[in-house]
Amino acid sequence: MAKKLSRIFLLSKLWAVFLEGPTTGGYPFEPLQLPSGFRGKVVMNAHLCNGCGLCVQDCPASALKIERFDKQHFRIVYNPARCAYCGQCEISCHRGAIHLTNDFNPAVQHIGNLIEVLVERGLPKG
């Protein structure tokens, strides 16, 4: 195993990288390229949902909750602060109602403001 040790081995490499220019980007000032399959915030096609509750049952982080008022009336509440963005709800949904968007930056002042109602069938107040 013949190895030539060199004290200036990296010099040419440094020069090549210098000429090549930086590979990092300036993200907050420049747009970020995300692949289409990126797993971000969960959204739901409310009219496709039949309230079977499989997504809620399979959610590993309990980010989805279902509140049933009676047989037809329910609502699904989503808490992005708990969400692990694993996409299990997307796999579990037989009706293709759920998918994950490219939105990865849901910053708010109060963490409670993140919680949103995805599906609402019937109101408890009535």
Binding site: P35, G37, F38, R39, A84, Y85, C86, G87, I91
Partner: peptide, 21 residues
């Protein structure tokens, strides 16, 4: 990996019975 699975380190690529990518 991000392009295929949508996550850089947490790929969630496996499901029981195969993969989802």
């Amino acid at each position: 990996m991000e392009e295929l699975s949508g996550g850089r380190v947490s790929h969630a690529a496996n499901v029981i019975g195969g993969v989802r990518v």
